[in-house]
Amino acid sequence: MRMEFVLEIARVVLYVVGILAFVGFNASYLVLLERKGSARFQLRHGPTEVGPFGLIQPVADAVKLLCKQILIPKNVDVILFFMAPILVLLPAILCMVTIPFGATIAARNFNLGLLMVFAFAAFNVFGILIGGWASHNKYANLAAARVVAQNIAYEIPTLLIVVAVVMVTGTFNLQEIVAQQAGGFWRWNILRLDLNPLQPVAFLMYFICLLAETNRAPFDMVEAESELVAGAYTEYSGMTFGVFFMAEYTNIVLGCCVATVLFLGGWQCPFGLVPGPHWFLLKMYALCFTVIWVRWSFPRVQFYNLLNLSWKILIPVSLANIILTALMLKVF
């Protein structure tokens, strides 16, 4: 009994450190990938000076951010001002607890894992909203108002798509959803046309919603450098801005993890050979790369078009998707 207790403590510590390291690694090296990627898209080289191929650049960036002075502008609501970055980052890290990286690698095999991810994702909007308001800055206020309109508009189709998937899987447990997709790539939810012919469309819509929910270009209304200075983050400097930045990348990784689990078979191998965490990471980083790819390929959409896309296309189609799934479940 004592031995098991020690093991449990060791397990918890290991997972906490592991998840924090994973989040930190992703935040720093996805930024590098983004900079390298954007450079290649624009026929440049990107960072090359620090280390071979600029591989140690993230360390230099981190040191710079940590050394920068944190400015607190006049008339700022100090408590809320500092609470906002924490509120944005913490829930994203918390959600990592339920993500199954492999058959036995999941910090907690939680029955309601999927629901937990979407419940805590709600804090994200609240955090940015508070940050934008507390900054006492016109640009930040405007950006915060836009973010709410955007995130509410895209949360609806996201949840509707997820509901359709859950109707098929019959469980919120992420580990079980992955287990159901064992066997080969034709068993993945994205290709289960026998369950719902619209499944690939649902995946595409989920991906669009993911871009909008994480405030990535072409939907980056929260920052919109060319119109709103730096949007909700205008008054944040040094590491407070760094935390927002980390949260953005953590949310992207989280969204890609959920997409991998829901549609791409999680840690299952496409050919039924050696399933394991390497497949999960491969799929997840492929999705992350696509997110970056999209950012440097498409211009920012107009705000009204953004809302129109959600309310006039995504929501009706996802509702139709639910009805179709229900029909298919009832008929077959």
């Binding site: 309601l112 419940a119 709600a122 804090f123 909007v125 308001w133 206020n141 108002a145 949360e155």
Partner: peptide, 28 residues
């Protein structure tokens, strides 16, 4: 846990955000 997650999803994610939004629209 289901009730707990729903509490967060509805009260923090919907109610508080809506109130905040209304406040921002009324006086900056």
């Amino acid at each position: 846990p289901f009730l707990a997650l729903m509490q967060i999803l509805i009260y923090v994610g919907a109610v508080c955000v809506t109130i905040m939004f209304a406040l921002m629209l009324t006086d900056a």
